[in-house]
Write a protein that binds this DNA or RNA. Sequence first.
DNA 1: AATATTATTCGTAATTTTGCGAACAATATT
DNA 2: AATATTGTTCGCAAAATTACGAATAATATT
Lengths: 108, 108
Amino acid sequence: MANKNYTEEQERMARFAKAMGHPARMAILEFLLRQETCFFGDIHEELPIAKATVSQHLKELKEAGLIQGEIETPKVKYCINRENWELARKMFSAFFGQSVCKKESCCG
Amino acid sequence: MANKNYTEEQERMARFAKAMGHPARMAILEFLLRQETCFFGDIHEELPIAKATVSQHLKELKEAGLIQGEIETPKVKYCINRENWELARKMFSAFFGQSVCKKESCCG
DNA sequence: AATATTATTCGTAATTTTGCGAACAATATT
DNA sequence: AATATTGTTCGCAAAATTACGAATAATATT
């Protein structure tokens, strides 16, 4: 058991990944990427869950930095947070860009 | 509230993302990618948590399909599951490859 | 002023996650 | 046979997640 902590990178990427770690939130992100509309009501309509729950998932995505919301009375409009989206894109891209080592000492 | 369920894709990707949604598990994956060694003990040595907890995280990564383990008595060797790794790579790549819509109706 | 629309917050319940130490299993070594 | 080494599993506790309906807030409309 090392004394060592996790790196900033690991913490950050885990934060993004965790936010993506629920099908409802993946569905929301995909919806916002397609971006036909982005009002709360439209998002809710797409999902098989109660509006209170949708609101909760939106909050988590927002807190993770992947989306943002703004009020357009009486509606609320949600969108991808472009800056953090780009950051996440880069991190995941770099992560999966690593080639898996092929030493014979590895399984398979 | 739609009657509609989540897609297979959404479920699958959320499963991968969830597995990556903890810094300890990100650290494990990075360690296995670097692949200096891949015995349980070496992994445990890198992390600031008890071995029981490491074992638990490894189990989750295994159940999500991202890694695999095999016994090399008296040690246990863990590795990236190449097949699913490739699948995950493709899914995340496709997901982040989508360009974010730029309609003026979107925020920002 | 009363009502309707839209979405968030509150209160609650059930489940899952995270983490640990202790106990256990399985094989090697003495 | 006793001991050491290596990891997993068990039992438990604390915290976080997921989900819902009801209550609330904030503005528009009648």
